[in-house]
């Protein structure tokens, strides 16, 4: 995310991280989650699911901030995100350049 100035409390803000789960056999390939992900995490995969649709695939797993928007806009109950546990080396601090 680009800022027009760096927020003053950027060192204190904890940014949550999310893990996206895709239930491939439910997906109907409408592409809503891909088009409206605010962090551009997903892309259309080239493989087919059992129904013959292209499900989304996670392109940038580290960019997900667990906003749940894909989960709410998916008409097929096929995608959801859960909060990622804090990892070692990742102090959860937000960097202004990411």
């Amino acid at each position: 995310m680009k800022y027009w100035r760096v927020p003053l409390d950027v060192d204190e803000i904890q940014v949550t991280r999310g893990i996206v789960h895709i239930v491939e056999e439910r997906c109907k390939g409408c592409g809503y989650c891909i088009a409206y992900c605010p962090r551009d995490v997903l892309e259309m995969s080239s493989k087919y699911n059992v129904k013959g649709y292209h499900p989304p695939v996670v392109k940038k797993p580290e960019a997900c901030v667990n906003c749940h928007y894909c989960e709410t806009i998916c008409p097929d109950f096929a995608i959801y995100s859960v909060e990622a546990p804090p990892q070692e080396g990742d102090d959860g601090k937000h960097s202004a350049s990411c």
Partner: peptide, 17 residues
Amino acid sequence: IPHIWCSGCGIGTVFAS
């Protein structure tokens, strides 16, 4: 599930909400 609504149909989103 999967339901009968077409690919891109908005009913599923309203239903989820």
